[in-house]
Design a protein around this nucleic acid. Structure first.
Lengths: 179, 179
DNA sequence: CGAGCGCTTGATTGAGTTCAAAAATCGTGG
DNA sequence: CCACGATTTTTGAACTCAATCAAGCGCTCG
């Protein structure tokens, strides 16, 4: 039996409905859970010393979201995870994956590829944050995630890009005038 | 026989000596190689549209460095990799790991943990880049990598932190005056 | 239908960049 | 081991991009 993704094995797990605005994780929580999004969209973020939110990840359909560090190293979470749309999710927990160590070869190799893919995503983001202007970052974002850009409130996109909502608004104006 | 890391299996591979300033990878290269640092320090970086360098990673002793995306997806590299100290390295190639798929369980699980660790590092960096001031970033850097901070030229640290060498110099002055 | 939230716009501020030049450090050959 | 050229770091001054503060508009959803 061939699986198409590591997560397919959870197809039979019960789904859970989440209302927009509902929280699934808060900093300090001890949890072994991660969330597979079937429908809708979740988001994770941190808050800094001034209480400002910084979006770490969006998770639309078919994405997985969690506080990976809390998960893997049994630490208290540092992320908030909440729903930015009404969503259908599966709640999985680390032991469901048999502590990774009992994964069969196929699953392990897929897991490695998944992680590698994530690393590549992060890498692009780091390089962007290091080197690109607000306008470049936004342009890249809408090119990379054209569908997401429509669904997600601008202020959250701004937060993801590391700029203020006001700046994003101006960037968008600039871009629309250019055309 | 128990291995302490996935890379231990390469202990017997021939080492190679690299002079400071020597390049191991340039953008456009097609390569299956990655580098395990036994002694010294390598670094990877990209250049932006204005030709400015942005340090992506430092690799001192016992780190692995590569253009992961080029490696895993057979694409041309986008990173430069060069030595910032005279170094001893092992040159490994992807096939040496049997395309990942033939890894034994132990090795696979270790690989997963390594990748996870890398993701956690990136995560901290992203959060920092999103939310921290130049001063905060530098303070965190020297706290996190106290030994590296001494070995690496400031301009490269600045580049890693996403600020100019001039700004870093001023930040350092500020910090020293505070104490 | 009104309160609150999200987006926009304007005015001002500020952290960090850029450009320039001096001071300090490094490294290499004699 | 010293000296000299190159590179790195520091310092100064002007500037710039984005942040902050503030106010107004338009939805929507309760």
């Amino acid at each position: 039996m061939k699986r198409s993704t590591v997560y397919d094995q959870f197809k039979s797990f019960p789904s859970r409905s989440i209302k927009k605005g509902e929280y699934l994780l808060r900093p300090g929580d001890l949890t072994k859970n991660f969330f597979y999004v079937e429908k809708g969209c979740l988001r994770s973020y941190v808050t800094d010393s001034k209480g400002k939110e910084h979006v770490y990840q969006f998770a639309p359909e078919d994405w997985v979201i969690s506080d990976e560090e809390a998960l893997m190293e049994n630490k208290p979470a540092i992320l908030y995870i909440d729903a930015i749309e009404d969503s259908e999710i599966k709640v999985l927990s680390n032991p469901d994956l048999n502590e990774w160590t009992n994964l069969d070869k196929d699953a392990a190799s897929q897991m490695i590829q998944q992680l590698q893919k994530k690393i590549n995503t992060f890498r692009r983001r780091i390089i962007q944050l290091l080197s690109a202007s607000a306008e470049q970052r936004y342009s890249t974002f809408i090119k990379t995630y054209p569908n997401l850009a429509q669904r997600i409130p601008q202020k959250m996109i701004a937060s993801y890009l590391g700029i203020t909502p006001e700046s994003l608004s101006r960037v968008r104006k600039e871009l629309s005038e250019k055309k």
